[in-house]
Design a protein around this nucleic acid. Structure first.
Length: 461
RNA sequence: GGCUGAAUGGCAGAGUGGCUAUGCACCGGAUUGCAAAUCCGUUUACCUCGGUUCGACUCCGGGUUCAGCCUCCA
């Protein structure tokens, strides 16, 4: 039985979807004005893991992850670059899709863009005004009246009075209440604009997600996810908008992933301490980055460092070593004991560290069996492979991963094989000096040899 | 200041009211011509002060430190 931590209750709750067997899930995606960084990658991987686990648990999942493609930052960045907004967003959406592929993500069911859902936003705002919960201001903006929604603060555990007391929002004379937030923003002459009852403008960020979620998933959804930093005000505002319109509970389970930190500080654009995904991919594989992101629980903060990535590399190397020579074959049997333990860990609010520990134990047992040659060894290795698939890892050919690709200075496989052959002959003649000379040469080029049962295999270190 | 949450061995990171997490690193052994890989074994923990309990790292309370949010942010 799956249990998920619900931010609304701050507890793990048994997961019961609205419609048995089906799950609707909405995740706040990226505002696309730059390359994705490791913090974004964590969000993507965390909810990809959830998506996979729900599917493996036989749910019919509709997964929506939006793209915010209209926003002040996008407008500003396009202006800075001297390019059109469309060119900018298309470019970065393309880059994001490449990063997602590197991270071995499954495609969400829908990936809506804010600019394609303007009509729905417009009608939501209209309804809010009609209900007296929003108002157009004299500057052309439309604001949500926070005081009209008694439950405001229920997600983030804040009280409206406390928010007022700790007021840090710059005074804006157009707002009736400093806590009110913008639903529709009047556009200046040179800014992109859509027609509306309140003049040309563009939507506020919060209403975009309400609209896209409702458009594709309806008025009530099962799971709503996002980064922990979106809990307030973004998700609080989504609740206020959506529930004010529908009179129904918007999302049953609110899930938030912990943030990636650098030197114990949040990784973010504004702090300039971020590493982009493609920067990391220069030194590490997407699978290694993915493994690193799954090595801690999704709700905990995760400190980014190279030694952590090195650790992920070593861990994957160990798992892949146990999978050498094992091809995918879905018809083979699996060790149900291990599958159960894996499932139990994942059912416990996606406990990937424990799930991964099951994979390591499988690797140890495969090795103990002397590899995948024996019947039992093969079954265990196959289990490792299948469970790896559930986490989106270990699906590449083990030898290819371990032998890597040729870097500029390195030797290609043919050259390595030739040297190994020469060494085999030397060893047959007990010419240890020559044998070691060749091995040292290869070691210097980052190639590590392993002699086993009279055969020599190699990998890159 | 307010609201969340966290403090575990050299590093990372789970978990439990009494019993091995797991990975990396270290040390000893096996294996190997020597290595590597692999296996076996060992060492190193639960921020602090009180309380509850036969027994607490695990529950409760105080303290300290740290992070996130309170403004755009995954």
């Amino acid at each position: 039985m799956l249990h998920l931590h619900n931010t609304l209750s701050r507890k793990k709750e048994a997961f019961k979807p609205l419609v048995p067997g089906k799950v609707s899930m909405y995740v706040c995606g990226i505002t696309i004005y730059d390359l994705c960084h490791v913090g974004h990658a964590r969000l993507l991987v965390a909810f990809d893991v959830l998506f996979r686990h729900l599917q493996a648990s036989d749910y019919d999942v509709t997964y929506v992850r939006n793209i915010t493609d209209i926003d002040d930052k996008i407008i500003n960045r396009a202006a800075e670059n001297g390019e059109s907004i469309n060119d900018l967003t298309e470019r970065y959406i393309e880059a994001m899709h490449q990063d997602e592929a590197s991270l071995l993500l499954l495609s969400p069911t829908h990936e809506p863009r804010a600019t394609n859902t303007i009509e729905r936003m417009h009608s939501l705002i209209k309804t809010l005004i009609d209900k007296g919960m929003a108002y157009p201001a004299d500057n052309g903006d439309v604001y949500y009246a926070v005081s009209s929604f008694p439950e405001y603060g229920k997600l983030s555990g804040r009280k409206v009075e406390d928010l007022r007391a700790g007021e840090r929002v710059a005074v804006d004379n157009s707002k009736r209440d400093p806590l009110d937030f913008v639903l529709w923003k009047a556009s200046k002459a040179d800014e992109p604009a859509w027609d509306s009852d309140w003049g040309p403008g563009r939507p506020g960020w919060h209403i975009e997600c309400s609209a896209m979620a409702m458009e594709l998933l309806g008025e009530e959804i099962d799971i709503h996810g996002g980064g922990a930093d979106l809990q307030f005000p973004h998700h609080e505002n989504e609740i206020a908008q959506t529930e004010a319109v529908t009179g129904k509970s918007f999302a049953r389970y609110w899930m938030h992933n912990g943030l990636v930190q650098v030197d114990d500080e949040k990784m973010s654009k504004s702090l300039h301490n971020f590493f982009t995904v493609r920067e990391v991919l220069k030194s590490y594989s997407g699978e290694e980055l993915r493994f690193f992101l799954m090595s801690g629980h999704y709700r905990s903060p995760l400190n980014y460092s190279h030694s952590q990535l090195d650790n992920a590399r070593a861990s994957l190397r160990r798992l892949y070593t146990a999978l050498r020579g094992v091809g995918a074959d879905a018809s083979r049997s699996v060790s149900s004991e291990h599958v159960e333990r894996f499932q139990t860990a994942m059912d416990d609010d996606l406990n990937t560290p424990v799930a991964l520990s099951v994979l390591f134990e499988l690797a140890t047992e495969v090795n103990r069996e002397g590899g995948a040659e024996s019947k039992r060894g093969l079954k265990l290795a196959n289990t490792l492979l299948q469970l790896g698939a559930r986490l989106g890892i270990l699906q590449a050919d083990a030898d290819s991963v371990l032998q890597g690709s040729v870097d500029e200075s390195g030797l290609d496989a043919a050259k390595i094989e030739a040297l190994i052959q020469e060494r085999v002959e030397a060893r047959n003649n007990k010419d240890w000096a020559r044998s070691d000379e060749i091995r040292d040469e290869l070691t210097a080029d980052g190639v590590i040899l392993e002699d086993k049962d009279g055969k020599t295999s190699w990998r890159r270190g």
